Amino acid sequence: MAEFKASFSGAAPAPELAAPLAALWWSAKGGWDEAHRIVQDQPTADAAWVHAYLHRVEGDIGNAGYWYRRAGKPAAAGSLETEWERITSALLGAGSA
């Protein structure tokens, strides 16, 4: 996680990052549009989970709920920061980098 966060000083995420992690990278940098573009057409459950998070950030809870269901995850209720950490930790731990 520390290495991932340290990469925020760069201009773009590492090219080897899987799409969901690249989207989380952009989200952390304030690049919602870029993050959404990356995951919106990805067919994986991990991408759907990040997509749900992004719609929650946007404030579109109804759309977020759809994507949580697609991801097979419960809708998050805590802070956005906590959710970002949880998703990122899960994806980094799953070897998605």
Rank of each mutant, 00 (worst) to 15 (best):
R70Q: 15
P20D: 04
A18I: 06
G31D: 08
K73Q: 14
T44L: 01
S79V: 01
R70F: 04
A11F: 07
K73I: 03
A2M: 11
A77F: 10
R86A: 12
A75G: 08
A76I: 03
G65A: 14
I38R: 12
W67L: 02
D41R: 14
H36A: 05
I87N: 08
I87R: 04
I87C: 02
A77K: 14
Y66P: 09
A52F: 04
G95H: 00
I61N: 13
V50G: 01
L80H: 10
A19T: 13
E81W: 00
T44K: 09
E83A: 00
L24E: 05
E85A: 00
A2S: 15
A28P: 04
S7T: 02
P13T: 02
A64H: 08
S27C: 12
H36R: 00
P15H: 13
W25E: 04
H55D: 00
A19E: 14
A76R: 12
E85Y: 03
G31T: 05
A14F: 05
T88P: 06
S96H: 12
A64G: 04
S96W: 03
P20R: 09
K29D: 10
G30E: 08
A94C: 00
L24Y: 01
A11S: 12
E3L: 03
A23E: 08
W49E: 13
N63P: 02
S27W: 11
G30A: 06
G30S: 03
E83I: 01
A18E: 10
M1N: 00
K5M: 15
K73F: 06
A77S: 14
H36S: 05
Y68E: 05
S27H: 11
D60C: 02
A48C: 13
Q40S: 01
A28H: 13
I87Y: 10
W67C: 05
E81C: 05
A19L: 14
I38H: 11
M1A: 12
A28E: 14
S9Q: 12
G93T: 07
A47R: 00
S79I: 03
A75L: 05
A64S: 15
T82Y: 05
S96E: 14
A71P: 04
I61K: 13
P20W: 01
I38M: 03
P20Q: 04
W49F: 10
V50T: 07
S89W: 00
V50L: 02
A22Q: 09
